[in-house]
């Protein structure tokens, strides 16, 4: 089948539908169709991770998936993390530790870290490095990012403790 295809994708709880060319990359759907500009493009080779999002809860590089393949799925982008302008624990830890400078890699870093913490609430430094190995940062030297993720894990576990 050639020509455009209708796709329906739920992004951050909102449904987007559009007729798209099969070759349209998911990242372009997010940025240009849904107009969510927080997800960035940094390379041509699935290396840099600036476009990382969660697809049905799992971190993927949205530059390496066709939008038509995401039809019917649920996506979370960096814009989903804060609630009414209030930073979540991970974002707050990035702020606290100045885990960013230019901010271009940050949305991808946050989404990779979100995924990591979702399945490993208490990661070691090595596990954090592994968790963000698919995200390139050219500003920070990664050290503050690692600290921030570690710190976010601690805060999250303290909050979970409180709830109990």
């Amino acid at each position: 089948m050639s020509g455009k295809q209708l796709v329906n994708i739920e992004i951050n709880g909102k449904k987007y539908s559009a007729e798209v060319e099969p070759r349209l990359l998911l990242v372009d759907f997010i940025r240009d169709t849904a107009k969510l500009k927080g997800t960035h493009i940094g390379c041509d080779t699935t290396s840099c991770g600036a476009c990382t999002i969660l697809l049905d809860g799992k971190s993927i590089k949205s530059c390496t998936m066709f939008a038509v393949e995401a039809d019917g799925s649920k996506i979370s982008t960096v814009e989903s993390l804060a609630t009414d302008g209030k930073l979540n624990i991970l974002q707050n830890a990035f702020w606290e530790h100045h885990a960013l400078q230019c901010g271009y890699c940050t949305p991808g870093m946050l989404m990779s870290s979100t995924f990591l913490l979702s399945r490993n609430p208490d990661p070691t430094e090595e596990e954090i490095r592994e968790g963000i190995a698919g995200n390139i940062c050219r500003c920070t030297g990664y050290i503050n990012i690692i600290k921030a993720v570690k710190d976010a894990a601690l805060v999250m576990s303290a909050e979970t403790g409180k709830e109990k």
């Binding site: 500009k37 901010g103 271009y104």
Partner: peptide, 19 residues
């Protein structure tokens, strides 16, 4: 002092050229 610019950037609210 914590970096004020970071607040918008961790929310993906920066304004870069491609945006």
């Amino acid at each position: 002092i914590k970096i004020r610019e970071d607040v918008k950037l961790v929310q993906g609210k920066g304004h870069y050229i491609d945006d």
